[in-house]
Design a binder for these strands. Structure first.
Lengths: 354, 354
DNA sequence: CTGTTAGCGCGTTCAT
DNA sequence: ATGAACGCGCTAACAG
């Protein structure tokens, strides 16, 4: 007895039989092969339509050795930054008939590895990573498999790897110099996951800016919450507020952290920007809300995702070979969490600038 | 010459050959078949490990007729509500070794259909829908294919379909009655996509609440922005503000719309809640931000996604057969966009309550 | 242009 | 407990 076929599936053979053709001819017709007569193509198309034929992409992928899926590894889709990246990726992918597999890693190596295996086992054609330490052995393994891959927002030292990101060092400098210009001298930093490149580079920019303006670097107001979340920002800010001389301004490694910090400040009965000024990073949509109006550093997030996908698919389809190294320029968005440019600011900053 | 195999792939045959076994034995060993000796199992596992074997899920899916993927159709991952649903779904799915395919539909029938085809062609095992009008013929087609499916947040009249949602009629009543209790009599509604069930039910609750309190229903302050976005809320609110007698309070069909409305109000130099009170729906994380503090109706979003996934996978694995009809209870979260319960409110509401 | 043959990698009878 | 043979649906190689 025949194996019970998967739910009443119309195959290429069915239509071949009905038309008295061979399966290969039908296959060719369906794939718009040049070596097929217009008439057969028509007939095949018609019959396919009539029978309700749907191509089995799995079978196709089996012979081709690759599935038209790309894996999207991000820490957390719940973070608006990554949601926006995802949107960019998905828009491009779906337009080009690729599926995108959502993989949340929570910055956890274990999850990352689990997914790396999963993706490999499913022969996905390519990867977009916003999460991993690319030095992860499993990712390396995928790389060796030949699976093309592009990093978004994160960068790496593995030189063959493509990436698209924003100049985070520069972005941080923009942010901190803005604070300095406003007269702040005790400027703190609240970081996310310390091991992650965007965090590192923002920290680096922060230090450079301080140094350039002869401002002291203070360990006790340069802390990491461990993740890019509101809770992280909230907790660290609370701690800063207990200090003998708390910072008068804080540069947060991303907007979520900034928002959490603001929460902490308000909860202590203080206010932003009067008591402490805040700058965030990313310019997530909610940063512009009335009542929030967070001063922040913007990245072209959607474009970054879209560009990464565009490039990746080009590579997959053999339209490109060179690697992509794209660095967008960050933009400072001045809103209300740092106060206006006050006179006191002018003075101090001139003094520092000399 | 042999077909060039996909990137240096270790197959079941390779390990069979090396061990002097047959492929079938290896297959069985790998799948923990009961009819295999412990010793062979060990040897096979070891060899597999040594050779770096990775099962080809595609080949497997081809014979099984189904891939361990589920399709997640949502309007827009950029909306925090859906991001949260997605997170719930993904957490469960990945724990059970299923992949989740991200499909943004923008509430567009065309995109929905394109994805329905795509998913079918890839033999995904099941679907979670937060987007479609299930009456969509393509979705119907998928249903007929036998693909299990569960609706989140949306409901339908097709009786065999499973769903998990919140009682939106009740939620809307909660919201509007809160407003009434505060003394408002001119309460407007700003809807999202009119054709979508959660919107319809929230509208229905709105009307019921008005009616129950003998408040007039006014067409001109019951409008739809067409989508669940800030822009939609912004635009409609601006229009309301042009009216001769604008509403003193607005119930928005979701938080994004509410946020957009607030933006419009503030931009007109008015303030919330003094000039117009606002209630939203969903309780997205940003609703609780200091400076925002939106009064809203909460749904257990993450749980809804997780439950839907849990149920779907149970069905796929034959552990369940009955359909799931789960309706969560909404909760009113009172924050600051409606003002405190004022004396004026007490009076009017008692009067209305009689 | 079209048909025939032969796999892709795996799981599954049916034997033994 | 193991092996041989076959098929899942499709595409590529080789004939004509």
């Amino acid at each position: 007895m025949r194996r019970s076929k998967a739910a009443n599936l119309v195959t290429i053979e069915d239509i071949a039989r009905q038309l008295g053709l061979s399966p290969s001819t039908v296959s060719r017709a369906l794939n718009d092969s040049p070596l097929i007569s217009e008439r057969t193509r028509q007939r095949v198309r018609a019959a396919a339509e009539a029978l309700g034929y749907r191509r089995n992409e799995l079978a196709r992928a089996l012979t081709k050795g690759t599935l038209r899926f790309i894996g999207l590894l991000i820490p957390d889709i719940t973070n608006p930054f990554f949601a926006e990246v995802a949107r960019g990726v998905e828009d491009i992918a779906s337009a080009r008939r690729y599926g995108v597999l959502l993989c949340n890693t929570d910055e956890s190596l274990a999850k990352e590895q689990q997914y790396a295996h999963f993706l490999r086992e499913h022969q996905v054609s390519g990867l977009i990573l916003t999460s991993p330490t690319v030095d992860d052995p499993c990712v390396q393994e995928l790389l060796h498999t030949g699976t093309p891959l592009v990093l978004v927002s994160r960068i790496t030292h593995v030189s063959e790897v493509s990436y698209v990101c924003t100049d985070d060092v520069q972005g941080a400098i923009l942010a901190v110099e803005h604070l300095i210009r406003l007269g702040h001298r005790a400027i703190g930093f609240i970081g996310g996951p310390p091991e992650v490149t965007p965090n590192q580079r923002r920290l680096q920019g922060y230090r450079q800016a301080l140094q350039a303006h002869n401002l002291p670097f203070r360990e006790e107001i340069t802390r990491h919450g461990g993740s890019f979340t509101q809770e992280a920002g909230y907790i660290i800010m609370k701690e800063y507020l207990q200090l003998n001389s708390p910072p008068t301004a804080v540069f947060a490694a991303n907007d979520l952290i900034a928002l959490g910090a603001i929460e902490a400040i308000v909860e202590e009965g203080l206010s932003v920007p009067e008591d402490v000024a805040i700058v965030g990073y990313d310019d997530i949509p909610f940063a512009s809300l009335p009542g929030v109006e967070l001063t922040t550093v913007a990245q072209p997030v959607y474009e970054m995702g879209a560009l990464a996908a565009e490039y990746l698919l080009d590579v997959l389809e053999g339209k490109r070979r060179k690697r992509l190294w794209k660095i967008f320029r960050p933009r400072l968005i001045v809103r209300k969490t740092c106060g206006a440019a006050l006179a006191r600011g002018r003075l101090t900053s001139n003094q520092a600038d000399q």
